[in-house]
């Protein structure tokens, strides 16, 4: 679908990422855009070039879109407020703040399985405090009007006043998973074992790891999701990750389609729009 032929998209990855970068790249290429992959840790940032200077340079090279992944919360917003108005900016994950395209592909995946959002109970399990994915999912789910969003984690991994985001807090899987329609597991970063957030992997898996036994508390047709990459035996048991309720690989596949849609819409080139400009030309 050559909707973005002649457009240049720069993938600005200030932070390591395999999955997100690859799916963005694939999505852009399937739309026939020219793609520039820039990993900043190996680029000018280490030479002391300021973020803004770098953006000005890329702007001057006639880029139409920046896909930004950054370790600081608010980085994509900062970039969007300082680039020229014709440049689109897509947030591919900023610090602990947001990962909107991930949340959108998750919603797409849920919709394919569950149709109506208004009756759904969704549990998000794991490191809510440091998770941009969880924040964007909560934002999306509450916007779509689900019946209930639950977050399940020990207090160390629950951010202060998280209730203000519209969620219910649980500290026990056995209580939080009861009768839910969707279980979203979050990746546990290695760093959390330092700094007194958690005592160790073994205890974490026992308390918060998703096993078939714990999953049986959810609705029989509940689906299991994970933004990847998975830590098998830490947050999720392999039997569940590869089991029939898991839609984890489907999420990855949907990621490409959803990102294609987001990119073409942001650049104003949806199939409908393309068709109508073609019609206008014919007339």
């Amino acid at each position: 679908m050559p909707l973005l032929r002649g457009k240049t998209i720069a993938n600005l990855f200030f932070e390591a990422s395999t999955r997100t970068r690859t799916t963005f790249e694939l999505a852009a290429k399937r739309l026939s855009a020219d793609v520039l992959n820039i990993s900043i840790s190996t680029s000018a940032a280490v030479k002391g070039e300021s973020l803004l200077d770098m953006l000005r340079n890329l702007e001057a090279m006639q880029c139409d879109m920046f896909v930004v992944r950054h370790s600081e919360s608010g980085a994509a917003h900062f970039i969007a407020t300082h680039v020229a108005p014709h440049v689109s900016v897509i947030n591919a994950g900023d610090g602990c703040h947001a990962h909107p395209t991930q949340a959108m592909l998750d919603m797409f995946t849920i919709r394919r399985h569950k149709k109506d959002f208004s009756d759904l109970r969704v549990a998000i399990v794991g490191d809510i405090k440091h998770s941009r994915v969880a924040r964007s999912q909560i934002h999306a789910l509450t916007t779509l009007g689900v019946a209930e969003v639950r977050v399940i984690a020990p207090k160390t991994l629950i951010p202060r006043q998280v209730q203000s985001l519209g969620v219910h807090v649980f500290h026990k899987m056995e209580e939080g998973l009861r009768d839910v329609d969707v279980v979203i597991m979050l990746r546990l970063q290695n760093e959390r074992m330092q700094g007194a957030y958690l005592p160790g992997y073994h205890e974490y898996f026992q308390l918060f790891g998703l096993t078939s036994e714990k999953l049986s508390l959810a609705k029989p047709d509940a689906i299991v999701m994970h933004p990847g990459p998975i830590n098998r035996g830490v947050e999720i048991d392999s039997a569940v990750a590869d089991g029939k309720q898991s839609v984890i690989l489907e999420q990855v596949a949907n990621g490409i389609a959803v990102r294609m849609a987001i990119m073409s819409m942001a650049l104003g080139r949806t199939p409908d729009a393309a068709a109508s400009t073609k019609r206008e030309r014919l007339l």
């Binding site: 919360s73 703040h97 941009r132 202060r160």
Partner: peptide, 15 residues
């Protein structure tokens, strides 16, 4: 401040 805003924006909070 560690509170509603730090949670919403994903910024590290000072309690």
């Amino acid at each position: 401040h560690e509170g509603e805003i730090s949670t919403r924006l994903g910024l590290a909070g000072i309690p």
